[in-house]
Design a protein around this nucleic acid. Structure first.
Length: 571
RNA sequence: CGGGGCGUAGCGCAGCCUGGUAGCGCACUUGCUUGGGGUGCAAGGGGUCGUGGGUUCAAAUCCCACCGCUCCGACCA
């Protein structure tokens, strides 16, 4: 490709709204341009990167036995009513009406569409296993889109959906997909970790995320420093350590005045106790029907909203505001407690189960109960692991390990779904005994644009992007340092043609620009290998090749350069 | 949703406080110049000053409303 024909617009300065390097560099180097918050144009260079990533994904998905389809962007409400997610999904689901006032949504994910398609066609176990995928534009109306392609509203995603005859077979497929994902990200040349994860609004109970390690990552991932357990901080399991019981005897529960003491710290200090003698009561409001739930957790712990979401079957929720707290508990913020709470579900973290004689709010201003006890004073509807683990906490899987914290960019996630969608949407078939069965599903996503962004976060320097070869828009850039129509340009074009004939993606900078401009732009757009052709060296029948990543240059004879490039690209 | 900031040429910004009809750098056009790390010089083109309303002889500038963008926060009771 000739630069002069390719529509590459580079910028000296990054737009002021670009915060993270991948965003700044993608804009500066002319890969993307913003259209609206979280919505971008992909320019030719950007598109080529997306296509490279997509090609790798296609090859590995096909190799793993999946088949490509293309599902609609816009879907009718009925589809989402069948799965129940029209109500559950929340504001991220962009809803719209057609001219007949019928409800539609823009697909944030396609379980409904695929399940409905397969439900209509599946008759026999002979048609299984089935694994269908697509690479499609999705839309999620994020609260706060930012970081360019890393958290856009419109984005390109590869999503795959598998159907199997049994849970065992489905788990086999799941593991196979997990392997395919490893191959994909290995091939992309990224440093990543596969970590255990929650399934959020998608549902299901087994899930792994593929996290590209980068300090700018939005997710916290915790890994054991001793064994190979690693998980998203939202999901990371807890090793229970009972503490805080001075005595097992149940003491008399009584009210105490705690003037102006609303935080755990303040109350603990005031009562001369440790934070772990307290139990916090958090009121959450479900987005779907605005109903409230109360969550109990030990004073020194924090709630994992991800774990809570799993407990609530994927429903999205938010911490209640002051007004709601007042309405639900009868008392102001800071004094909520489980005793006497009526009309709402009461959940508690496992660590509360073993606590005795603890402190809780009394649902009235400036009053707490001391020596509160489970069952005697109030009843918990359900105990669950609801605590957010922190760096330094003990690993639940091995004896010695402690959690280390890293930042990660989630580029892919695999889910085992079971029959969550196949049951309500009627994905059934007859087994070899003629008995009707429901298919077991899995689903598997990869953010294509986000993978590109993550690659830049991990591979750049002060001059620009350093693309890993497999996803680079071009493998080689030829810098022709010519003046006008001279011998340098002609020689550069010859080399360009030879490389192109060999099927190599080559970009030739044939502009009438000064050398400095070309060097700067080459570093910015980050093509892995650069061939530099100038008048002086050409007079000696020599050219230079330079590796973007290391900056190392070597001088070669004009005759050898094509072979050398082929060699380094295959290395 | 709450709070802050911003909205002036394609991009980055100044001008606003103290009203008098818009400027700088980059980019772009033309000419010359230069030619291995964003060459230099000169001459140009380009702006409903986010939108609407108000105050005023006069508004980018002051006031009000709205819209958009952006950052932070989103409550641990």
């Amino acid at each position: 490709m000739k630069w002069s024909q390719f529509f590459i617009q580079t910028l000296r300065e990054a737009p002021s709204d670009a915060e993270v390097v991948s965003h700044q560099l993608m804009v500066r180097a002319g890969f993307i341009r913003k259209v609206a918050a979280g919505i971008y144009n992909y320019l030719p260079l950007g598109l080529r990167v997306l296509r490279k990533i997509e090609d790798i994904i296609r090859e590995e998905m096909n190799a793993a036995g999946a088949t490509e389809v293309l599902l609609p962007i816009i879907m009718p409400r009925e589809l989402w009513d069948q799965s129940g997610r029209w109500k559950v999904y929340g504001k991220e689901l962009l809803r719209l009406k057609d001219r007949h006032e019928r409800d539609y949504c823009v697909g944030p994910t396609h379980e409904e569409a695929i399940t409905s398609l397969v439900a209509g066609e599946l008759r026999s176990y002979r048609q299984l296993p089935l694994n269908l995928y697509q690479i499609q534009t999705k839309f999620r109306d994020e609260i706060r889109p930012r970081f360019g392609l890393m958290r856009g509203r419109e984005f390109i995603m590869k999503d795959a959906y598998s159907f199997d005859v049994s849970e065992e077979k489905a788990m086999e497929t799941y593991r196979q997909m997990e392997k395919a994902y490893r191959r994909i990200f290995d091939r992309c040349g990224l440093q990543y970790r596969s970590v255990e994860a929650l399934s959020g609004a998608i549902g299901g109970n087994v899930s792994h995320e593929f996290q590209v390690l980068a300090s700018s990552g939005e997710d916290e991932i915790l890994s054991c420093d001793h064994c190979d357990y690693a998980a998203n901080a939202d999901k990371a399991q807890v090793r229970s350590e009972a503490q805080g019981q001075k005595t097992s005897e149940l003491l008399v529960c009584e009210k105490v005045t705690t003037p102006q003491k609303t935080s755990v710290e303040e109350v603990a200090q005031f009562l001369n106790l440790k934070p772990y003698h307290l139990v916090k009561t958090l009121i959450y409001v479900l987005e779907q029907d605005q109903s409230a739930v109360a969550v109990l957790i030990r004073g020194d712990h924090e709630v994992s909203e991800g774990k809570l979401q799993s407990l609530l079957n994927g429903a999205t929720m938010q911490l209640a505001d002051e007004k709601t707290v007042q309405k639900v508990t009868g008392g102001p913020c800071g004094y909520s407690g489980p005793i006497g709470l009526k009309g709402i579900s009461l959940y508690a973290d496992e660590s509360v189960r073993s606590m005795k004689n603890f402190v809780v709010g009394a649902n009235e201003a400036e009053v707490h109960w001391v020596n509160a006890n489970l069952d005697r004073d109030f009843k918990v509807e359900r105990f669950a692991d609801l605590r957010r683990v922190q760096k330094g906490d003990s690993c639940p899987r091995c004896e010695k390990g402690r959690y280390q914290s890293h930042r990660g960019i989630e580029v892919g996630q695999v889910f085992y779904l079971g029959t969550k969608y196949s049951t309500p949407m009627g994905v059934r078939f007859l087994d070899e005994n003629g008995k009707e069965k429901t298919a077991f599903m899995g689903c598997y996503g990869i953010g294509v644009g986000r993978t590109a962004a993550a690659a830049i976060e991990q591979n750049h320097d002060e001059h620009g992007i350093i693309w890993p070869l497999p996803m680079a828009p071009f493998s080689v850039e030829i810098l022709s340092l010519h003046k006008g129509e001279d011998e340098v340009l002609r020689e550069a074009q010859k080399i360009y043609e030879k490389l192109t004939e060999k099927g190599i993606d080559v970009l030739i900078d044939d502009r009438n620009e000064s050398p400095g401009v070309k060097f700067k732009d080459a570093d910015l757009i980050g093509i892995p290998w650069v061939i530099i052709i100038g008048a002086k060296s050409l007079a000696r029948q020599e050219v230079e090749i330079k590796e973007r990543r290391t900056g190392q240059k070597q001088t070669l004879s004009v005759k050898m350069v094509v072979d050398k490039i082929v060699e380094v690209l295959n290395a």
